[in-house]
Design a protein around this nucleic acid. Structure first.
Length: 105
DNA sequence: CGAATGACCAAGC
DNA sequence: GGCTTGGCCATTC
């Protein structure tokens, strides 16, 4: 497993309850500003202890086709975290986007 | 090594 | 707001 993935997971674990972030934001913070897709790869392999569902697209959409099993799963988890949706498939990024990163140290 | 893939993004129409 | 195009780069075959 590449160090990149470990960094991604570490960062995702920092996301507080009730907050979400985007693939691009993570990639940017890790020093790969044009590699948001790699974050997607990392999420795909993410271990179950990672809150992958707090990571969504920059548009506020989730990571799957609407009404797919994974989509509903992710949406439910987000609703449990008091995340609000602008509509069926768009998270309200205005309220829940987490941009208060701290250095990993 | 080369070609295809992907839980993405920005720019243009 | 939606659709298409080009770019990104690790991973896979």
């Amino acid at each position: 497993m590449s160090n990149f993935y470990e960094k991604v997971y570490k960062l995702v674990e920092q996301i507080p309850f009730g907050k979400v972030t985007t693939y691009g934001a993570i990639a940017d913070n890790l020093g790969f500003p044009r590699s948001s897709r790699l974050v997607g790869w990392a999420m795909r392999q993410a271990p179950s202890n990672i809150c992958w569902y707090r990571v969504i697209k920059k548009t506020g959409e989730l990571s799957f086709p609407e009404y797919s099993d994974s989509f509903n799963e992710q949406k439910n988890l987000l609703l449990k975290e008091s995340i609000t949706f602008k509509n069926t498939n768009h998270v309200d990024l205005m309220k829940h986007l987490w941009c208060d990163w701290e250095d990993l140290g």
